[in-house]
Structure formats: C-alpha cells, structure tokens
Design a protein around this nucleic acid. Structure first.
Lengths: 124, 124
DNA sequence: GCGTTTTTATGCAACTTCGCAATAATGCAT
DNA sequence: ATGCATTATTGCGAAGTTGCATAAAAACGC
C-alpha cells in the first residue's frame, strides 16, 4: 500500500491508471493473451513466455494483485485464468488502436525518407 | 532507441506493452479523458489536471511520443487532441472491466468482514 | 525589447525489472 | 512418517526507469 493511499479514497483515475499499469509489461501482455484461450498452469506458461520461474511468478502475482487473473490449484500445478472475459475485449480494442498508431508511424517514416537529403549521391 | 531495438524487429507484445504503459498514469488518463470531448490547449488542461506546467508538459510529451495525441499550434497556445477516436473505446472498455474488478474487490471486502473475529464485541 | 505560453534540463527519490538463492507446498515412493 | 522430486513462490540486491520539483530556456505576439 502506497503512502498516498493511507488516508485518501483513491480517485477513479488512479484506479484506471493502476489497471493500465498492470498491462504495461511485455510478459504480462503475453500471459494475458495466452490465457485468452483458456487456463494455463505456470509450467505451461513458462516456455511460452520465456522468462525464468521466479520472474514469471512475480509477473503473475502483479496480474493477480490487480485482479485480472485468478488461480486454482490442481495437484502440484497452479492454473491461472482470466478473472474476466471482457479482458479479451480490452486487448482487442487496444490492438485496433495500435494498428492505427503503427500505420501512422510507418507513414512518418516514408515522409522522412522522401524528404531525405537526396541519399548522398556520391557516397561510398 | 533502446539497444535491443537496434537489430530486432520489436516483437508485437513489446509494442502493446508500450501502449498500455503510456496509459498507466493518473494524469495521462485524465488528459485523455479530457481530450475525449475535444481538443484543449495546455493552459486549459493545466487547472483541470492539477499538476504544474513542466510536469504536464512532460506527461503530454509521453502521450505524444506514444502516438496517442497530436498537437496544433494556434498563436501562442498549443492545442492537444486525441490522435485516434478509437482511444475513447479503449477507455470505455477498460472502464467496463474495472467495474468488474472493483465489484469483485468489494465482494472480497464483505467476505473479510463476515469472517472477521466477531467485530471486537466490547471494543470502544 | 517585454509578457505569455510551453518546453527542456537537471537532479533526486521512488518504483520496476529481473537474476540468483532460498523457501514452501504438494505428491509419491520407500 | 520421512525423504525426495516437482512445482511454484518469496527475499534480496543491482541496475535501470519513472515521477516530479525547481530553474532555465525557447517560441510566439505585441
């Protein structure tokens, strides 16, 4: 619990920021996408995410603390799953925006190339 | 440009994480929500966001670098606006998930209260 | 020039990431 | 039940990143 939270009823945009912060890491995005197609145990996730066990465990803990995933023990394995199916929608909508952003970036790139100082005619 | 980017085509989930990271701050969320209802100049945003000018400028720069907002000069003012209207959808969908998350949390809270050691019968 | 609006620079505290070592929790064999 | 292997988590510390304040500078209109 952060110092700030001790006495104040966390304002809404703080909570929203927390939510997005939880999504703001490659491994965590990867995990959520993997869980989009059904629950997975930690040992299943390990090779798919490609980080070492303690690190994965930590990232999973962050997602869990944020309330985005839930766990279920099954023998010696622990299965993680999305806490809410709507999370899939968040990822989908974000994907759509990202397409725009990347298209825009690509556009800027060709502009840059077009306005380049006439590719060094005599270079090399 | 990070070292890692020099030789590798940044994997997609890196880019996605960058996107969500850009949303992962209260002031930035606030700005995006304010811009959802139309462009605003920095000086308009200042009192609404409630942070000091350099800090706001920095947060705006982060949003701009992420490609989420665009600017337009008008005399001495600079107007910021959403780069893509779909951003509003992202915020909306996230809001829906958040409602679930918070409801769940509230549920856990009453469970905790229900299972409390019989609220200190004689306390104060 | 001067005032207004916005950005950049710099520095420090706070937080995050991630590896390694250690620990816990379970199931299975003896 | 004790030990052992498997599965997952926790603790800790180094390195890197982010947040935010103060001071300085840039860009514009007059």
């Amino acid at each position: 619990m952060r110092r700030q939270d001790v006495n104040h009823p966390t304002p809404l945009y703080e909570v929203k920021a927390e939510f997005f912060k939880a999504l703001g890491h490659p491994s965590r995005i990867r995990v959520l996408e993997l869980l989009s197609s059904g629950q997975k145990s930690v040992s299943e996730l390990l090779p798919l995410v490609g980080i070492n066990p303690p690190h994965l465990s930590q990232q999973l803990a962050i997602l869990k603390r944020a309330g985005l995933v839930q766990t279920q023990r099954e023998g010696t394995s622990i299965f993680y799953s999305l806490a809410f199916p709507e999370l899939i929608d968040v990822l989908a909508v974000a994907r759509r925006v990202l397409i725009d952003v990347l298209a825009e970036r690509a556009g800027l790139l060709v502009d840059l190339q077009a306005s380049a100082p006439l590719p060094y005619p005599g270079e090399l």
